[in-house]
Amino acid sequence: MMRLPWFDYRAPRTLSEAARILAGEGPNAALIAGGTDLLPNMKRRQSAPKVLVSLRRIPELKRNGAVLGAGITLTEIVRKPELPRGLRQAAAQVATVHLRNMGTIGGNLCLDTRCNYYNQNYEWRKAIDFCLKKDGDICWVATASKRCVAMSSTDCAPALLALGARVTLVSANGERELPLEELYNNDGIDYLHRRPDEILTEVHCANAPSTYWKLRRRGAFDFPVLGVAAALIDGSARLALGAVASRPFLVAKANDFLRGKQLTDDVIDEAGRIAASRAKPMDNADLDLYWRKEVTAAFVAYALRELRGDDLRETRSRIARYEPA
């Protein structure tokens, strides 16, 4: 049985109490929401925080109105038809039924980056003498790289980026709101611009026509090896990509190109080409990386065509293996 290491468990009942504990414990503490990312990582000894601060009992994080509390589960998102379709499609394709009942949107946005050299048991990592991200001094994916290139693997983040979402972070020193884009940093180790004493509390996101396409091997369990999100904002389509860098990102060049354009087949093809050129998959996840890059344009096309109103249900059911949201 894979077991967790020892830790102290704290279950504050208010946000301010949680923030106070975080401020006091510093980087020794970790927040636990659904635990579906944190606990496997702890079992594999990728991290071993001394203190776990549970967010489960904090009612503020459960807000489920126009503003989404960070503690809302992915299942709750899927079941809320008034939320943007792209977000619901993303949430509906995370992991499995069970994990969506447990995992939260806050945890999903703060998900650790992933890499096949890192998401392994302690014993396995010992056999490769560890790597930059944890306990080692070389990146096995890009041996000349000084930077860890582990992959951002959250499904909801690209969907929310395309929708122009903003998030709120709270600490003992106060609160700040920022565009979701600014939460992310393209570094596999330092992947969030979040201070260790901050708690992500809210997600603000307006509804807009939107869609999310996910590439993964199987219809369940698997993290994305490519996520394409598109939304129609002020009459223009916007694209965001996930799982092709250490952060999810708005594809600036493609979005510049798309601004003000009708989604004709030619426009869609060109947007696909531009977006694909920005995708930098690495050999640290499932499926052949060249192939992953090659199919990016096809996935962008699915997203933009669905956004335009084409009926893509048949394609969707072949790729997702079911109808997500």
Partner: peptide, 29 residues
């Protein structure tokens, strides 16, 4: 249990009526 990492579903139980993975839930919670 088949993995204890959330990767198989063998440990699923109902918590407040919803299926969840008992291998990734702290008993304390």
């Amino acid at each position: 249990h088949g993995c204890e990492l959330g990767e198989c579903g063998a440990c699923a139980v109902l918590i407040d009526g919803e299926p969840q993975l008992s291998c990734l839930v702290l008993a304390l919670e």
